[in-house]
């Protein structure tokens, strides 16, 4: 499974590469983040949460039925705003409060 990194939005801060549990993200020649082996990604979303520029999105690969929706996350205090961008451009947002426990 994997992530896509928006090379325009990426500021090259290197935080995603620092915390990736698989050490999969490195800097490319221009100092921007790139994932060396996308197939090695576990889809844990650690990099999405760490990225201050919101440049990283998670997607489902076609082999798992993915149809192109991108998932991004923005942190605001204890809130995590998860944003789904569908291929037709429509959006869905789900906000999770870290101070609110799972009901199930």
């Amino acid at each position: 499974m994997s992530i896509s990194i928006d090379q325009v939005a990426c500021t090259g801060c290197g935080r995603c590469g620092e915390i990736c549990p698989g050490s999969l993200i490195r800097a490319d020649r221009e100092g921007k983040a790139e994932i060396g082996q996308p197939a090695d990604c576990w889809s844990c979303t650690a990099c999405l949460k760490e990225c201050p520029a919101g440049a990283i999105a998670l997607y489902l690969p076609p082999v798992l039925g993915g149809s192109g929706t991108r998932l991004q996350v923005k942190q605001e205090g204890s809130l995590l705003h998860w944003r789904f961008t569908r291929p037709d451009g429509t959006l869905k947002t789900i906000t999770v409060d870290r101070q609110s426990a799972n009901r199930y």
């Binding site: 499974m1 994997s2 698989g22 197939a39 090695d40 576990w42 076609p62 798992l64």
Partner: peptide, 11 residues
């Protein structure tokens, strides 16, 4: 491309 879609931490 989905080989690391696994239950346990693949690392």
């Amino acid at each position: 491309s989905a080989r690391q879609a696994m239950w346990y931490c693949p690392f």
